[in-house]
Amino acid sequence: MNLTRRRGAKALFITLGVFLTALAVTLNITWIHNNGRRLALDLVGALLFAILIAGVVLNTVFLVREIRRNERQDSFLNAVTHELKTPIASIRLYLDTLSRRSVDDAQRQRFYEIMRDDTDRLLGTVETVLKAGELGHRQRAGLRTRVELHPLVADCIATVLNRHHLPAESIQLEPVPGAVRLYVIGNADDLRTAVLNLLDNAVKYSPNGVHIQCRVGIERYTWVVLTITDSGLGLASSDLKRIFKRFYRASSNDRVKIKGTGLGLFLVNTIARQHGGSVRAISEGVGQGTTMVLRLPLSIVNDPTSTEAA
């Protein structure tokens, strides 16, 4: 109901803006036609007309943006509510079952495992929301160390495989060419958060089978580049940049129900920027898979400003 109302409001503001602009153009042309001999007044009128049109256009743009922002926030709240309520309801159901019925040890252990997974899911949602708020208000330069990226990615892959109960061959990590050790200066926890979100996203958007290829390499002797390629749903060209905005969910994947808060890639983009790097998405289109490219400044081995992470 709120979505329909907001769409109606958006259409109203756009229509009103177009109408006022057309009315202003008509009045200005009429005024110039009736007072064509007074050049000075014509110039003043044209200037005032331009200011009026700019104000109307800016007002309409700001109103439409505000409506879109509110829509994204509503979608985020709905997603977070679902992500919080679902595991809580599941945990309560199994606890009620254990308290009211006698179950054998094998079934009890299965219930415990399911509740543990639901607890991990609940904790992950809370941590994502808290991390999004935390990253937007601070720089953690004082906590930065020298981190080797390849082992960090390998550790994140092991975590994701275990989290989603995937076989080892689902996510492959290529060795670094020449067995070079590639370091970056950064906060290890934040970098791990970024890599985990990229991997989780690749898994979630591969509903027909997880086949992910990861590679850590060097670019132009100054950048460490992590590429994560999946064979999943892919992205429309219009979504390639928008997916890194807060609360944004790719419109090209509306046909498939994907759980999430719309904060994962926003976190990745924020962390990359805070580390002097960038992240971008590459996709040939819907159904063609996606490649995520995370670029971070390479740390020189003898950099005196950093300490190596344990």
Rank of each mutant, 00 (worst) to 15 (best):
T125Q: 06
H137L: 15
G142Q: 10
K241D: 15
R242G: 01
A250W: 03
R116P: 00
V160H: 02
I14F: 13
Q109G: 00
D74C: 01
E308T: 14
F76W: 12
R255P: 00
P167R: 13
P297M: 08
V126T: 09
Q172C: 03
D96F: 04
A50T: 14
L130M: 12
V56W: 08
E174G: 00
L93V: 01
T305V: 08
R273M: 06
R100I: 07
T307E: 11
H150R: 14
G45P: 00
W31C: 01
S102H: 10
M292D: 01
T97P: 00
K257A: 12
L16W: 11
F111K: 01
R295I: 02
K10F: 10
D117E: 14
G178S: 08
H82N: 14
I91K: 02
D303V: 08
V301K: 10
S90L: 14
T119Q: 10
A158M: 02
T119G: 10
A309K: 05
D254Y: 05
P207C: 06
L77Y: 11
I171Q: 06
F111I: 04
L122C: 06
K204L: 12
I185T: 13
I271H: 05
I228H: 00
Q213V: 12
L166N: 02
R110L: 09
N269Y: 06
L233N: 07
D155M: 05
V210T: 15
L263V: 08
E66V: 02
T145S: 13
G36D: 10
G277A: 09
M292Q: 08
E66Q: 09
L122W: 09
P207T: 05
L240N: 00
A236N: 15
T290C: 07
V195S: 04
L233V: 05
L48D: 02
V160L: 03
I51K: 02
R92D: 10
L296E: 05
I157C: 00
R92F: 01
P167S: 13
Q109M: 11
H150M: 03
Q107R: 14
G232S: 08
E284N: 14
